[in-house]
Structure formats: structure tokens, C-alpha cells
Design a protein around this nucleic acid. Structure first.
Lengths: 126, 126
DNA sequence: AATTATATGCGACTTAGTCGCAAAAAAGGA
DNA sequence: TCCTTTTTTGCGACTAAGTCGCATATAATT
């Protein structure tokens, strides 16, 4: 879906900066932080975060915070859980069936924390 | 269990500050932040956090970060999931049966994010 | 074109948590 | 008990992801 269209649908004005952010998020298979993509975007940090806030309000994206205190962003597609590795800090989408329900709570995200297979195998330390 | 004993078992030197922290954590039924308990402790902020780090290394306590970017601490007792409310930021222990397994991952914590029943009912906004 | 509204860049700011260092407290002898 | 070594503490300065105020720029509207 072209990023301009996504924005129009949500009633968000289409700007160069916003298109840039969405286009990058569309190509990413895992959530990314500002740090991860700052070389690939041309806007200022403040503009990036202001637009990210706007996208969050419009329910366009999802943010997950990892152990490094950075927030990682992804387009909202099919709901799924996330795994954050406390060694490499990467945030991974977990597509496999994790279903959590809690009576009377609104559940918006499920985050599993621990050590990912790759860090486990290579015995990397935090 | 007296807090001095807990420390000795883990080979951590017993000091006034450490006993204070543990005694408070022992009385808490929900995870608490530094902010929550700073009036009840007599040590400096740096000392608090240094001891918290030590307790984490020794697997004595657990930390959960909420939406307010603060970390909430609890004694490690029986493993259980946590719920963090993005409106009131409280961290709640979820004792009911949530079991998550992921092949080849080490799972250390499961955090469910959303809106708690109390904030839902009263329609509080973030 | 002129007016109004919204978005952007820049630099200063916020804030939970961390660090360096000197003073204080504990531990271990002799 | 006194002396030496090791660990802990308090204080103030610092860190870093993210936010804010404001002036400028861009877009929409009349």
C-alpha cells in the first residue's frame, strides 16, 4: 500500500517526512529504532518523533521498548507478540500462536523478554 | 524471611541500605519504583540503584519497566507475568495461568501492556 | 496574492538512571 | 586495639532518548 494512501485514510496530511518514515517501516520485517534508520531519513530528530507520535495516535504503528531504553517502531499489521533480547536488544516479532486474555483488561501488546537463540548459542553477555 | 539472611545466602554483604530496600520489597504486593518508596528509605538515589543492580545480578529481584519509563522492582518469588497500564502506569502481578514457551529462547519475563480495569471503567485518559 | 493553519529545523531542555571520586564503614590481620 | 585493605555510601556532575518552544517554511483556503 502506497504510504500516501495510508496517511490520507487516517486523515493525516501527506508530507515528505511522513512518507519517508512510512516507506521505511513498510520495508522492515522487524521493528526499528530512530537510531537504526536515522541515516536513511532526511528529517530532524524532533520531526521524526513528532510524526511517530501522530502515527501512534492514529493507530498506524506500534512501539516496543527494548532493554536499551530505545523504542522500536513497526507498522501495525496483524496483531502479534514481541520478543526483546536483553543481550542484543533486538526486537523480534513472534508470529506463532501466543494468545493472552485477561478478563476486564484491554490488552494492547504482549512482550516476552529474555535471551534470543542467537545470543544463547554464542554465549554473548549483556 | 529476614532480609539479612537473604543477603547472606547470596553472598552479598549485609548493610543498612540493603536491608532497608529488601524489607520494603518484602512488604509490597506489587512492584514499586524508586519514586514510590524514596520517602521510606534513607539512602541516596545512587546507592539505591547500585544495590538494585547488585540484587538483579544475584537474581534476588525482578524489574519491570512501565510506560512512564520508570523501572518497578519486586522480590523474585514465584514466576508470573505482569500487566502494565498505559494510563496509570501501575505494574500489576498476574498470578493467573499465563504460560508462554518459545523453542530455543530463554524466557525471563512476560509483560502484558494495555489498560487496566480501573482506568477502563473510569474512562481515564493517558 | 493574502491569510490562516500546519509542519519542520534548531537548540535548549527533561528525567530516570549512572559514574567518578572522596569520605565512611566493614573486614582482616598482627 | 590499632593499622591496612576492601567495600559501600553520598554528593554532584553526567548521560541519552525523547520532548518542547519558537521562528521559519510549507501547504491549504479564501
Amino acid at each position: 500500500m502506497p504510504s500516501g494512501k495510508l496517511l490520507e485514510e487516517k486523515g493525516i496530511k501527506v508530507t515528505q517526512a511522513r512518507k519517508e518514515i512510512l516507506e521505511i517501516l513498510e520495508t522492515c520485517t522487524q521493528p526499528v529504532s530512530y537510531e537504526n534508520i536515522k541515516e536513511s531519513i532526511s528529517m530532524d530528530k524532533a520531526t521524526f518523533y513528532r510524526n511517530i507520535s501522530k502515527f501512534e495516535e492514529s493507530n498506524l504503528i506500534n512501539a516496543i521498548e527494548s532493554h536499551d531504553k530505545k523504542r522500536y517502531f513497526e507498522l501495525k499489521r496483524k496483531p502479534h507478540a514481541h520478543f526483546t533480547c536483553r543481550v542484543c536488544n533486538q526486537v523480534e516479532c513472534i508470529k506463532s500462536g501466543i494468545y493472552v486474555t485477561l478478563q476486564n483488561y484491554d490488552i494492547e501488546n504482549v512482550i516476552i523478554q529474555g535471551i534470543c537463540p542467537s545470543c544463547k548459542l554464542t554465549n554473548r553477555l549483556p
